[in-house]
Design a protein around this nucleic acid. Structure first.
Length: 293
DNA sequence: TACCAGGTAAAAA
DNA sequence: TTTTTACATGGT
């Protein structure tokens, strides 16, 4: 299956950034486990052409409901995101020009499902991303479902039948275990309609998410920008965001969330994507990947 | 060892 | 009403 994406698209760079932000060490692999039609499904993606940007799916067999599956993959890949208008705006600024030019074709991937995004967000509250990653790996090992050599992340219904102690055994705090159980139970009964999130306006969705116990401002905004690809949403209280915005745009100062919002204001409607590019650039320097490019 | 790490809800003041 | 605290793991 071939997926033709809006270019420019650098799949390898995007994948490497996903790995870096997920807590894994940089990987060039393109393999992914996800649920499809109630089946744990392993897929492998690779880019076969730059211009036009084509991502190819290797999978045997190709999942059923091919057309819908392709649409789902396009979502995960952010295939329809147009980077050129964003680049044109940022290139007019002398701080951003070199940053953008070193990250051409970088797109933020979206997780294969939104409940998984919820778990990612809650697991990352307060503790380091490394610590959160190892907790999620234990959730995956304990409650996931094999999909070939990979493991599909547990669904709401998989969590819903667990208890607090089972989740605590994976390293979650009692509080977070309670949040996840409540959310999983509501999602599996339909009281929380995750599918409806996709079409809601940013503000309305943030308000809805914040009404759930365990979801504060940071978590809601993080889910929108990372889980739903809302390019204008910034989790301004995020430590990483405050650090990079301070580093690149405020002379290295420590910034309050309010200051972050003010400084990013001119970059609407791409404030979230702008923050993502700053985070990615900072990470790339840290990893020493700018020379490897 | 102590402290911080891409927060939040609930208790205490 | 506002401020303070408990919480989990991994790295330094």
């Amino acid at each position: 299956m071939r997926i033709i994406c809006e270019g420019p698209y650098d799949f390898r760079l995007s994948w490497r950034m996903l790995s870096a932000f997920s807590g894994q060490s940089a990987s060039r692999d393109g393999s992914l486990a996800m649920w499809w039609e109630d089946r744990p499904t392993a897929i492998f993606l690779r880019q076969t052409s730059q211009e036009p940007a084509v991502i190819e799916l290797i999978s045997d067999p190709i999942p059923k409901e091919t057309r819908r599956f392709q649409k789902r993959l396009r979502t995960v890949l952010n295939a329809d995101l147009e980077l050129e208008p964003f680049y044109r705006k940022l290139r007019r600024d002398k701080t951003f020009r070199p940053i953008v030019n070193s990250l051409i074709g970088l797109k933020p991937f979206r997780p294969p499902d939104l409940f998984q995004m919820l778990v990612i967000a809650i697991s990352e509250q307060q503790i380091s991303m490394t610590a959160a990653y190892s907790i999620r790996e234990r959730l995956l090992a304990s409650f996931g479902t094999a999909a070939g050599k990979l493991t599909a992340f547990p669904r709401p219904r998989d969590f819903a039948s667990l208890d607090v102690d089972g989740l605590r055994a994976c390293g979650l705090s009692r509080r977070k275990a309670e949040y996840l159980l409540e959310l999983a139970q509501k999602a599996s009964t339909g009281e929380i309609d995750i599918a409806a999130w996709e079409d809601m306006p940013d503000d309305e969705l943030i308000e809805l998410l914040r009404s759930y116990r365990g979801v504060g401002e940071w978590t809601a905004e993080y889910i929108l920008v990372r889980g739903l690809g809302r390019t204008d949403v910034v989790p301004a209280s995020d430590l990483g965001v405050r650090r990079v915005v301070g580093h690149y745009l405020a002379d290295g100062k420590d910034l309050s969330p309010q200051e972050v919002r003010e400084i990013l204001e001119p970059w609407a409607p791409w404030r979230g994507l702008t923050a993502f590019y700053l985070l990615a650039h900072y990470r790339m320097i840290q990893m020493g990947l700018d020379q490897a490019q």
